[in-house]
């Protein structure tokens, strides 16, 4: 399979040079063409920062990001810059605050088409907007309305249409359903999944809830405090969660089943249980397609879990 996005040992630092805060610490992963790649972690783990680095909002301080084989981090020529901006789009978390309150839906969806490097006639633009809105299940006549006239689920559809109108190859979806109602979540998830299948889109799906990710993602990376601790095909991750943090996350998923829920044991992750004073933790492949971070002793234990 072709690698579409390669994140190669990137770090992101905030704050002054003298007192840097490392939000993302030496993170690497590849996203293959046509897959949905999940990035899961708690708030403050750096998952959004990684997403924002890929769309080049946050500059990275080390490493390299490649898209379609070409470097996209650091300085780019104007033409490359415009091309990448078009190819990578983002869907935001909160549809209540990510849409321009003063613009009509038609303009919101079309806005990217006005950007430099895109030369479209008014006619073409209207055609593209109409097509994008149809694809996400919005009626064409909605384009003359304002965002406040729509419910949360429909607003999120507007956000998705705005990304689709650029004909992107890759979409960064940053918690696209966390702010939505349970009944609407299913609709939006189905929509994202359909778009993947019909258009061959590739996603980076950022979430804090493993249950959602399991349904939609092909591969999942679990991130804690700016480091990826486990990366695996999603079914393997759920079959053999290895890293203690992954297990803590899994145990916290609320199950809609009172009997299970009342007897469940919550695992609390305590980072001090690792003894990394003697040796640095290593990134090892435990079973095919399943990687985890750990010291030599922990890796051995992980292997035993997988074999059992």
């Amino acid at each position: 399979m072709k690698k579409l996005v390669e994140v190669d040992h990137i770090s992101v630092q905030f704050g002054s040079r003298r007192h840097p805060f490392t939000a993302v610490d030496d993170v690497s992963f590849d996203i293959y063409q046509g897959e949905i790649f999940g990035l899961v972690g708690e708030s403050g783990s750096g998952k959004t920062t990684i997403g924002r680095s890929i769309i080049r909002v946050n500059p990275i301080s080390a490493g390299e990001i490649r898209f379609d084989g070409k470097r996209i981090s650091g300085r780019l020529s104007d033409r490359d810059d415009q091309q990448v901006t078009r190819d990578i789009q983002m869907i935001f978390q909160d549809p209540m605050s990510s849409l321009n309150e003063r613009a009509k839906v038609g303009y919101i969806v079309a806005e990217g088409l006005y950007a430099p490097g895109n030369r479209f006639t008014e006619e073409e633009r209207r055609e593209k907007v109409k097509k994008a809105m149809e694809e996400v299940g919005l009626l064409p006549e909605f384009s003359s309305r304002f965002p406040h006239e729509f419910s949360g689920g429909q607003r999120q559809r507007i956000g998705i249409a705005r990304a689709l109108v650029m004909d992107p190859k890759f979409i960064v979806a940053d918690e696209p359903i966390s702010a939505l109602d349970v009944s609407i979540r299913a609709q939006v998830l189905n929509l994202l999944k359909n778009l993947q299948q019909e258009r061959g889109l590739t996603y980076l799906f950022i979430a804090h809830d493993l249950s959602v990710v399991r349904f939609i993602c092909d591969r999942i990376a679990v991130i804690h405090k700016g480091r990826i601790v486990e990366l695996s095909e999603s079914e393997k991750l759920f079959a053999h969660p290895l890293h203690p943090y992954t297990r803590a996350l899994l145990s916290a998923i609320p199950q809609p089943d009172p009997v299970e829920e009342k007897k469940k044991q919550l695992i609390v992750y305590d980072p001090s249980l690792h003894d990394y004073t003697k040796e640095k933790p290593a990134w090892e492949e435990i079973e095919p397609g399943h990687f985890a971070l750990g010291s030599a002793k922990e890796i051995e234990e992980y292997r035993r879990i997988v074999e059992a």
């Binding site: 419910s151 689920g153 349970v182 009944s183 979540r185 299913a186 609709q187 998830l189 189905n190 999944k193 359909n194 249950s211 959602v212 399991r214 349904f215 939609i216 999603s234 079914e235 998923i253 609320p254 199950q255 809609p256």
Partner: peptide, 23 residues
């Protein structure tokens, strides 16, 4: 029924999630 069925926890990979139509 619809509310319980639409939970992502219960989704089966490869099949669309049950979703409540309309508003």
């Amino acid at each position: 029924w619809a509310l319980l069925s639409s939970l992502p926890q219960l989704g089966i990979k490869g099949k669309p999630l049950y979703s409540i139509q309309g508003t």
